[in-house]
Nucleic acid binder design. Structure first.
Lengths: 330, 330
DNA sequence: GAATTTGAATGATACGTTTCACAAGAAAAG
DNA sequence: CTTTTCTTGTGAAACGTATCATTCAAATTC
């Protein structure tokens, strides 16, 4: 063994006085006699041998690495999701290779390409590029977004969550509901929150309005909208469903600026419930996404051996959690 | 080229009618005639060829991958740091392997081992295992914590930050200061916040107290401490420096429960300032860590060619940001 | 005890690159 | 016209592993 460079199997074999293949078997699933196994393990320990995973990857075409492509991890929902993905992958013996796109469609494509350069056993992506090219070569699971017919999409039951929020608000006495949304221009599963909300309202004959914004619009339009619907210190709506916990908090602050407080004057329900997954009590009443389950499911589907007959959309159940902005205090 | 398996350089060479080595040169820094280069590139495009980075890694011993080992990424400080690390690495053409230890010393050691066996080009770690074994083989940069003599440590100027906080509070009229800390039992650079705080107080002859807790203690002791120092609705301290923005918010809530409000009754300063890096205005006045710079510095030092003569500790400058919990409102 | 099966060690081969010594031709120098 | 220098294409030889067809001995069966 040359000094300075890492010891190889050949070194271990020489040190242990066995054949190369025997050493290989020890570090894989081969059957090796107990005596030989010990000899090899000792020699390996003595030399500080570690498997070279690049040589292994070259031979096996398996890398035990999965690429996770996300717009960012600053948004608590994404950071909690990432952490759960990381744990789910680790549990199965996989490592996580994280790419952050910052919502840049080109970056998304670039990362997907890079990941496919034979470096990864699969990709989990939350992408906004509507014309993303994904080679069938590498297993791909999409989060929240439809990519192409053969790419499974994992998401929360956004429709059900929207219904749940509206139903809850009505049960708590609300009579004029409002749905507020801000997000990407590219539609995803999460936009079904509105559909669920409207479906319930229409079905139950509840008065309701909707304000649907894109990130580029900023919060300004919310402010003017609310302003236009406040008369003599009184808001036209008594229940608001916001597409996100983050938005809920912003709206709460905004309304407080107008002297309108939750839950006395208006009840607010958000979506995500990440605070719960962070071990805190939620800062607002919310529809909780089952993040750990979402992560597990993504990984399960991604690593499924049988790649034929994959589901195209998996919706996972959400739940409601009280968090102070509604009048169902525990 | 066998169907179903990715095309190799050999396939490209055959397709282009050139030698294997020529193809290789095209995808590296070799000098190749313009005509040949075109032929190769076209053939590669036609075949959809992509470099197999495992074979490349095997030959070059360079993987362009860096492992990042963190306790979690749910804490906003860590998630912002991770995002910045990711960007800094990407900018230099490196990929990021992310491992989450959840503060488990064994997991830390396991991940470091794994990272080394996976032949990453370097490791950036924030670890709490006091007896962490790090092979000199792989470059290592530690965040906030001293690991061993030859492992550079990158951190904010925590001492200076502590001084700054105390100074600011005094400038804003505080006369009895309190420092509150909760964190790991393992000491790190961030514990110098207290030292800086005390240094200033002692130097300036300011009355001050300190409460130093570990995670396992929970917030209970804070509550009792504060309770014991409230007499007739009046807190003994008029300025509190909390070791973290998160703690600041907790303390603020706790005090509000006692009818004591910031900044009227007491001024609070936190540490981290992640809200700023997330594009929000901070929720509390705070000492801001220069997270982008921290990330850049970690990466710079990690990837420095000349590994001799590395600094053992790099302290980066912090700054103060107003956030509503002090009386210096803009 | 001979024949057969089983279990385990062996070592050559291939994976897809990079690299390097060489060759071949063109250009420059004498 | 010869010699030298440069440029650029070539193909063989690693890199460290997994695999597989062999081989060899021991265990089992008849």
């Amino acid at each position: 063994m040359k000094w300075g460079s890492a010891p190889t199997m050949k070194d271990v074999a020489r040190e242990a006085g066995v054949a190369l293949g025997t050493v290989s078997k020890v570090f894989n699933h081969g059957t090796v006699g107990e005596e030989y196994r010990q000899r090899v393990l000792e020699a390996a320990a003595r030399l500080g041998y570690q498997v070279n995973s690049y040589a292994r990857g070259l031979k096996t075409n398996r890398t035990y690495a999965v690429a996770v492509v996300l717009p960012n991890i600053i948004n608590p929902f994404f950071s909690v999701l990432t952490q759960n993905l990381c744990q789910a992958l680790t549990k199965r013996g996989y490592r996580m290779f994280l790419s952050i796109t910052d919502f840049d469609p080109e970056a998304e494509q670039r990362y997907i390409h890079m990941a496919q350069q034979n470096q990864v056993d699969g990709i989990i992506g939350l992408t906004y590029n509507p014309e993303l090219q994904v080679a069938d070569q590498v297993p791909f699971v999409s989060f929240d977004r439809y990519v192409s017919p053969n790419v499974p999409c994992v998401a929360s039951d956004n429709f059900g969550g929207g219904q749940m929020a509206a139903k809850k608000l009505v049960e708590l006495g609300c009579e004029r509901l409002l749905f507020l949304r801000i997000g990407s221009t590219v539609a995803g599963e999460s936009d079904k929150r509105r559909d669920g909300f409207e479906s319930f309202c229409c079905g139950a004959g509840v008065e309701h309005d909707t304000l649907y914004l894109c990130d580029s619009d900023g919060y300004g339009p919310f402010r003017s909208f609310l302003e236009n619907h406040i008369h003599q210190g009184h808001l036209d709506y008594d229940g608001i469903f916001c597409c996100t916990d983050g938005l809920t908090l912003e709206i709460q602050k905004m309304l407080a600026g107008f002297g309108i407080y939750a839950p006395q004057d208006v009840q607010l329900i958000g979506f995500d419930g990440t605070a719960i997954h962070m071990g805190h009590t939620p800062e607002c009443s919310t529809i909780v996404q089952p993040i750990p389950l979402l992560a597990e499911t993504c990984v399960d589907i991604l690593l499924k051996e049988d790649r034929s007959d994959l589901p195209s959309l998996i919706c996972l159940p959400v739940s409601y959690a009280y968090g102070g902005t509604t009048r169902d205090g525990v």
